[in-house]
Simulated scan of single mutants.
Amino acid sequence: MMRFTTLIKNPADWMTGEGADNAIVLTSRIRLARNLRGESFPGWAKKEERRHALEVMRPAVEGLSVMKDAFSQELDDLTSVQKQVLVERHLISREHAARGEGSAAVIERRQSIALMLNEEDHLRMQAIRPGMSLRGAFESLSAIDDELENALELAFDHELGYLTTCPTNLGTGLRASAMLHLPALVLSDQIGQVLQAVNKIGLAVRGLYGEGTESLGNLFQISNQSTLGESEETILRRLERVISQVATHERNARDKLLEDDPAMVSDKIGRAYGVLRHAWIIDSKEALTHLSLLRLGGDLGFLPQDTVKTCDALLMDIQPAHLQLHSGRKMTPEERDSIRAEIVRGRLQSLEAPDIRSTRKKDESDPDPEIL
Rank of each mutant, 00 (worst) to 15 (best):
V198F: 05
I222N: 02
S215G: 08
E233K: 14
Q196S: 15
R238Q: 09
G207R: 00
I222W: 00
L195H: 02
E214F: 00
R241E: 11
L236G: 04
S231Q: 13
T213R: 11
L236F: 08
N199Y: 11
A197I: 06
R237C: 13
T213K: 09
G202M: 13
R241L: 15
V205H: 06
L236S: 02
E230C: 10
N199L: 12
Q221K: 07
G210R: 06
F220C: 01
S231T: 15
L208D: 06
Q196N: 14
E211Y: 04
K200W: 15
R206E: 11
R206Q: 10
V205Q: 02
S223E: 13
G202V: 08
N218W: 04
I201Y: 15
E214L: 02
R241M: 14
R237I: 12
I235G: 00
V205N: 05
R206G: 03
G217L: 04
I235C: 01
T213S: 15
E232Q: 04
E211H: 05
E233L: 07
Q196P: 02
L208H: 08
E230W: 11
L239A: 03
I201M: 15
E233P: 01
L203D: 03
I222H: 00
R237E: 15
R206S: 09
Y209N: 05
R237Y: 13
S231V: 09
Q196R: 09
L195E: 01
Q225V: 09
L236D: 00
Y209P: 01
E214T: 00
Y209A: 08
E214V: 01
A197R: 05
L208T: 13
A197P: 01
L239P: 01
G210V: 06
L208Q: 12
K200E: 14
T213L: 10
L236A: 03
K200D: 14
E232I: 00
L208V: 11
S226V: 12
E230A: 14
V242W: 07
V198K: 03
E230P: 02
G212D: 04
V205E: 03
Q221M: 10
G212C: 07
G210N: 07
L195I: 13
T234P: 03
L195G: 02
F220M: 04
K200M: 12
E233S: 13
V198I: 12
Q196M: 14
G229R: 11
N224F: 05
G207W: 01
S226F: 07
G207I: 02
K200S: 14
G207E: 03
R237H: 14
G229I: 12
Y209K: 06
G217P: 08
L208A: 13
T213Y: 12
S215W: 01
L236W: 04
L208S: 09
E232D: 11
K200A: 15
T227V: 08
N199M: 13
Q225P: 08
N218V: 01
L239E: 02
R237P: 03
N224R: 05
G212F: 06
G229P: 06
S223A: 15
